[in-house]
Each structure stands twice: as C-alpha cells, then as structure tokens.
C-alpha cells in the first residue's frame, strides 16, 4: 500500500468553511471566470492592480467568489492571501510553481520555491481526478493577468 497524503488537512477544511477574500471586488482592474463544466466548480477571480510609489505594479487586492468543492475553495482562498502585495510577475511565478507542485514535479521540501503555506497541496498529484479542482482558481488568475476572461481546466 502506498502511503497516502491526507488531502483534507485542517487548514484546507478551515479555508473551505471560512474562505478568505470571498467577495466580488468592485474596484477590480483584472478579473476572470474559471469553470470546470465536468464537475461544476465555477468561480470568479478579481485583482486590483495599481502602481506603488516606486512606479511598479502591485496586486493591492485579490478576491474570489463562486462555488466548488473544498479543494477548489481552499486553493482559491489561500491563493488570494498569497497574492496580496505581490507584483504580477511574482504572481505568474507562483502560478507556475503551483502547477509544478500539483503535477508532483516540485518537491517543496527539497527544492526552492516561494509557495509558503500553499505547499499543503503537494500530495494532490496522488489524486489525479482532483488536481483540476486545486488548479481552477490559479488558471483564472493566469487568465486575469493575461486579459483572458474565461478559463477552464477541463
């Protein structure tokens, strides 16, 4: 028997129950809709990006709304927390690191990364059917940053 990673750790259950930044951001500058037609997970990611005093772009606010499973909601909630104060460039780096993590291509314990608490999703590659749940908000983020309004992970 292969050792199993506990997908439903307390942090994930907590974010599912009390998702952070769970609202429509009226003042958003970027937004995208993410939809998995096969499982019904459906959410919107909003970003408010503005110039900081030194002239660089910064994500001032990140929020999401919609419905989905616990994995999808927790991933979205934790993503919005990780994005605040980051540059769009860093957000793109986080996106690609998170993709590698979901595919099992990044070992967060031995390789360098900036994922912080998000590494909690590292075991999900053992559940291929659930990877897209964790990925949905991130694809919407990537869509928002690329001015693409609708994304799907199917």
């Amino acid at each position: 028997m292969t050792s199993q990673v506990d997908l439903y750790q307390q942090v994930i259950l907590d974010h599912n129950k009390k998702p952070r930044n769970f609202k429509k951001l009226e003042s958003h500058t970027h937004a995208a809709e993410g939809f998995n037609p096969l499982c019904g997970d459906h959410l919107w990611v909003y970003l408010q990006i503005a110039k900081s005093p030194d002239g660089a772009d910064v994500i001032h606010e990140a929020a999401f709304e919609g419905s989905g499973c616990a994995i999808c909601k927790a991933s979205a909630s934790m993503m919005t927390m990780a994005l605040k104060g980051q540059s769009p460039g860093t957000a793109k780096t986080l996106f690609s690191e998170f993709q590698s993590l979901l595919k099992g291509e990044l070992n967060p314990d031995t390789e360098a990364h900036s994922l912080g608490k998000l590494k909690i999703f590292s075991g999900i590659w053992q559940y291929p059917a659930r990877v897209k749940c964790a990925a949905l908000a991130w694809h919407a983020l990537n869509g928002a940053l690329s001015n693409q309004q609708t994304v799907s992970t199917e």
Binding site: Y8, C39, G68, C69, A70, I71, C72, A129, R130
Partner: peptide, 10 residues
Amino acid sequence: DIHPHDIGTL
C-alpha cells in the same frame, strides 16, 4: 455544505 467530489474522495 459538502461538495459531492469531497464526499467521493473521502
């Protein structure tokens, strides 16, 4: 308040 996919995995 529990999505069917979470039920299925658990």
